[in-house]
Design a binder for these strands. Structure first.
Length: 546
DNA sequence: TAGACAGGAA
DNA sequence: TGAAATCCTGTCTA
């Protein structure tokens, strides 16, 4: 009993001993049923959540299998309350369904009597006959709303209502576009159960793994009109470019719907903000109705983790349309994860950096955390400052610049990106090392010029503010130096490392994270690093001394 | 008709 | 927790 790797607690936390010989066996299973929360030294702390269990259900895992797993690898026998709670979650999954009967009417049915009335209080629905439990007829347009209501009470509804077909659109991918094996798998995972609940969901692929390609392949499979929603202008253009390059579609069939142009076309690419915009006086959505007027066969939510809350209503109104969310990061940190689960769909496909690296599609990342202590003067300043200012003071630790100097020397033949969060700090770096700095203030043309020079190796090093997080047109680099980061989001880390990992001739790339030890910044940095740990990599830690 | 810029939003 | 970036609309200029 004693020599087992897992400590399973009643509070849904699981402590895994990473030095244990069996950790390699339990890790993949843990990742299927729980979320990684913290990684202090030789322990990985996981947490079981409602969604992590539903995901397991989705994968076809059964309750008794988890129970056996816990019994086999737990130091102690698993706590009964936890098992009961988990069993309850398994029971909830699939308890409520939406189906379409032979006459085309939608029916919401529950295996448990009274549940529908309890959740949809004050709403009268006509009873519909079911073999077990109870059922009511609902209107097609209510599907999204109803699913969201049930989700609010932790009942995930299995939507088997199928889809309406969109307006046909002839589109093929060009022969030159070869799908990689995992891209093919992703497309199949999404479409495998076309008629029921298989045409929607989330696909998780690391940056640089070709999410757009998966989108194009889906379009070519379905051959119906498409609405593509993206977070910004750059990815808007990116989608258009890829469509032109890799499919048979004519540019007259592709429309931009953004601040400058407002075209609706068989393939329409719009920004999220466009859809969320409200009229200042009437408070009504300015553009939503326009989008609802067309018969889409597919809606693609690019970077679905950025889906803004007001858009959930739009998403809810489009439940009869096939939809796919594309993202590079686990959506699960987001408080809105449940809405994405119920309105876009469950995770259908995920592949990690490690498997892509093994096939040579991504470079091998070497991540190092360098601890840069304050000098005495700054240390005093830090401790005397208010809690509010401490994070920034630690982030802007001037000693970090000395480390940057060392790193620049060490990697002088490689292309380097220096990334930071505070403009003041970045300006200091730019001044000291005489490299160009790009911030949100930098005009677009100037950015492009600098990117081009960097690509041609005319400049070896660029200094970037948060513009780096989502800018798709940023060229490849082999070294990333993170001076400071935001309040510990894995997403940010994912984007920044992903930036470097884009397929390149380089076998490995280096990512350095500069952190002031024993400060607020270090706590946050630990959370950010979870991203790579989750992906199966470890950060090496190093103390810097001058 | 296009672009530049200010101001507001989330 | 807070700073920075982005996108939208409307207005002005050429």
């Amino acid at each position: 009993m004693q020599r087992r790797p897992l400590l399973i607690q009643q509070d849904r936390f699981i402590y895994a001993d990473t030095t244990h010989e069996e950790y390699g066996i339990v890790r993949p299973i843990l990742q299927d049923i729980a979320d990684l929360i913290k990684t202090p030294s030789t322990t990985h702390i996981y947490q079981v959540s409602e969604q992590s269990i539903w995901y397991a259900c989705e994968q076809g895992i059964e309750f008794h299998q988890i129970k056996t797993f816990f019994e086999q690898f737990g130091k102690l026998s698993p706590p009964k309350p936890l098992l009961d709670w988990m069993e309850q979650q398994f029971y909830r999954f699939g308890l409520v369904e939406i189906i379409q009967d032979n006459s085309g009417q939608f029916c919401l049915r529950s295996k448990e009597k009274g549940l529908i009335g309890q959740i949809l209080k004050n709403h009268d629905y006509r009873q519909c006959p079911v073999e077990e439990g109870e059922g009511v007829f609902i209107d097609e347009s209510e599907r999204g709303w109803i699913k969201a209501q049930f989700m609010a009470f932790d009942y995930p509804v299995r939507d088997q209502g199928g889809y309406e077909e969109g307006t046909p659109l002839p589109i093929e991918t060009l022969p030159a576009m070869k799908l990689r094996s995992y891209q093919k798998e992703a497309v199949e995972a999404l479409l495998k159960r076309k008629q029921t609940d298989g045409g929607n969901g989330v696909i998780i692929l690391p940056c640089g793994a070709g999410k757009t390609i998966v989108g194009l392949a889906l379009m070519a499979e379905l051959k119906q009109e498409v609405l593509i929603l993206t977070p910004n202008d750059t990815s808007l253009r990116q989608w258009a470019r890829e469509l032109m390059d890799k499919t048979t579609i004519d540019s007259s069939k592709v429309g931009f719907y953004s601040s400058t142009k407002k075209e609706l076309a068989p393939v329409t690419i719009a920004t999220y903000q466009m859809l969320t915009h409200r009229n200042a006086k009437t408070k009504k959505f300015s553009h939503l109705p326009t989008f609802q007027s067309r018969k889409w066969g597919l809606v693609i939510y690019d970077e679905v983790h950025l889906l803004p809350a007001p858009l959930f209503r739009f998403a809810a109104s489009l439940q009869s349309v096939r939809r796919v969310g594309l993202t590079a990061t686990c959506v699960r940190e987001d408080k809105k994860e449940k809405e994405i689960f119920s309105l876009i769909g469950p995770k259908r496909y995920e592949i990690g950096i490690q498997s892509l690296e093994r096939h040579g599609w991504l470079a091998h990342p070497v991540c190092k955390e360098i601890k840069v202590p304050f000098d005495e003067h700054k240390a005093r300043h830090y401790w005397e400052s208010s809690k509010r200012d401490q994070f920034r003071i630690a982030s802007e630790n001037p000693k970090k610049l000395d480390v940057v100097e060392e790193l620049l020397k060490k990697h002088k033949r490689e292309k380097i990106l220096i990334i930071g969060q505070y403009i003041d700090q970045l300006e200091q770096v730019a001044k000291r090392f005489s490299y160009p700095l790009i911030t949100g203030q930098t005009p677009k043309e100037q950015r492009e010029v600098l990117f081009e020079q960097f690509r041609n190796s005319k400049i070896s090093t660029l200094i970037l503010s948060r513009v780096a997080n989502l800018a798709l047109d940023l060229p490849d680099a082999q070294v990333g130096i993170q001076l400071s980061g935001t309040f510990g989001s894995r997403q940010e880390e994912a984007q920044r490392i992903g930036r470097l990992l884009r397929p390149s001739q380089q076998a490995s790339v280096h990512f350095y994270s500069l952190v002031t030890p024993f400060t607020k910044e270090q706590e946050r940095a630990m959370n950010r690093q979870l991203f790579m740990v989750e992906q199966g990599y470890e950060y090496e830690s190093e103390e810097w001394s001058s």
